[in-house]
């Protein structure tokens, strides 16, 4: 039963991945990848780790894909001509919603699907102990990498803001002082 469900979900992931590959519009490709990552989260749950499935859902499907869609929409107007139309084909959108709803319903209602080898979630409780035990250095390194990624975005935004104000990115600090000092090119 679980193997059949895995086949079904895997087939859905493969179909949407193929759709992502052949879509001319980047926006439609991003939506196809979103559906494929949702299928991946269900597969992780069927593989015996609902915790990792939820993390995949929140981080990859929820966080990263939203960033990708925003990045596609935030491209300057002259760059939009490089991409095809932003509309997602309606049959594809409807198929995505229906497939996901059917899978969620099956996971909740059908017995024996949420089991794992060993029982579902048996290892999830030990993951925290490993992450902050033997893998503590790796966890801190991953947290640092995430922090640096956030800093890169903030730094980029600050540079853009200062350039729009006519101030050199390496000019004044803190930023609040840029608009108050005469002769610094800001505060007009």
């Amino acid at each position: 039963m679980r193997e059949l469900a895995f086949y079904f979900v895997g087939a859905g992931a493969i179909v949407f991945s193929l759709g992502m590959l052949v879509q001319r519009s980047l926006y439609a490709a991003a939506v196809c990848l979103l559906m494929a990552l949702l299928q991946t989260a269900v597969m992780l749950s069927l593989a015996g780790s609902p915790l990792v499935g939820c993390i995949q859902l929140i981080v990859s499907a929820g966080g990263v894909m939203v960033l990708v869609v925003v990045a596609i929409m935030a491209a300057p107007s002259q760059a939009k001509a490089m991409w095809a139309r932003f509309a997602v084909p309606k049959p594809l959108a409807a198929a995505g919603v229906l497939v996901l709803a059917a899978e969620l319903l099956a996971l909740i209602t059908l017995p024996g699907l949420s089991g794992g080898v060993p029982p579902a979630g048996a290892l999830d409780a030990k993951v925290g102990a490993v992450l902050f035990g033997s893998y503590a250095v790796a966890t801190e390194a991953a947290a640092l990498v995430l922090f640096l990624a956030a800093l890169a975005v903030v730094g980029q935004e600050e540079n853009d803001f200062m350039k729009r104000r006519g101030v050199s990115p390496h000019g004044c600090f803190p930023l609040a002082a840029c608009g108050t000092r005469p002769g610094r090119g800001g505060g007009k």
């Binding site: 990792v52 992450l131 991953a142």
Partner: peptide, 13 residues
């Protein structure tokens, strides 16, 4: 499994 969680975090970054 812990490695999977770390992979997801690094991939997001």
């Amino acid at each position: 499994l812990a490695a999977v969680v770390l992979i997801i975090c690094v991939a997001a970054a």
